[in-house]
Write a protein that binds this DNA or RNA. Structure first.
Lengths: 145, 145
DNA sequence: ATCATTGCAAAGGCTTTGCATCCCT
DNA sequence: AGGGATGCAAAGCCTTTGCAATGAT
């Protein structure tokens, strides 16, 4: 993740913002973290090794990640804002397990194309979209018998 | 909307709940209302003619509508829970104007089929989905020049 | 009479902000 | 030294709930 770290640092410099140990720590945790952590997820995770980092700092730092483009905020309807690293594919949507919350990313150009078509049909200019499929993942299917 | 009114009344009776003037008024307002009102939308709308109806009552009544199947709650990511009447098509998704908030419903069996396919590919059992396309509607395109 | 309903106000849950202090540059 | 950053606590927002009073059956 060399690149993202650099992107973030460059962003800070360029905006006249400061590089701090908290920001470095949060960035590191975010990049190592499993997918789509909420502010709280990261905060709790960090608290173990860095009990002095406040919730507000995590919150504000994630916002910075979002601003500089290395992360994007997502709302999966579970009442928490989640952040995902934007390394991956250009665009993707999510398949979410309703039982365990596992998140799988997917992308399908056919769906993307159909969305364009639908927007056009209604005279809309397409700006963005949100697409989540909720289901039960293989593991939870087993557990459920 | 004869039907829905009846469905709601039957539900109340059958559940041992009571029919009250507030519930009738809220149902009427909901059915007449433009699409996808939030609790607040309805509350404010009602307040003009029925300043004595409380927010909590609107909130609880919409929940009842949802329970008996005449309405469904939706989360479009604008921080408010919205409710839509479930008369219409079996299933549909939404095209939303980012400028004025206008909501157009759409449905596309091709997208539905692709979702099934994607879930299957990942070993998931599909339970539900959420799909919103955000764009700029014809009117707002004009306004924007 | 009985028990659900109502309206108000207060409590929750998450996000956001104010502010004195701290720390990069 | 100067101004952004931090951490705490408090404020905002919307949703949800407690409770005494009210109303439907």
């Amino acid at each position: 993740m060399r690149e993202k770290t650099q992107i973030f640092r460059d962003y800070l410099t360029q905006q006249g913002l400061k590089s701090t140990s908290q920001r470095e720590i949060i960035l590191d945790a975010f990049l190592r973290c499993g997918s789509h952590p909420s502010t709280e997820d990261l905060y709790l995770k960090l608290r173990k090794k860095h009990p002095n980092i406040g919730y507000a700092t995590v919150y504000r730092t994630l916002k910075l990640f979002s601003e500089c483009g290395i992360a994007a905020s997502r709302d999966f309807g579970d009442g928490q804002t989640r952040y995902e690293s934007t390394t991956d594919a250009e665009h993707h949507d999510h398949l979410i397990c309703k039982d365990c919350g596992a998140i799988v990313e997917f992308e399908d150009p056919r769906i993307e194309a159909l969305q364009e078509e639908i927007a056009r049909q209604h005279g809309f200019i397409l700006l963005s979209h949100r697409h989540e499929i909720f289901g039960r993942c293989p593991l939870c299917q087993e557990k459920a018998g």
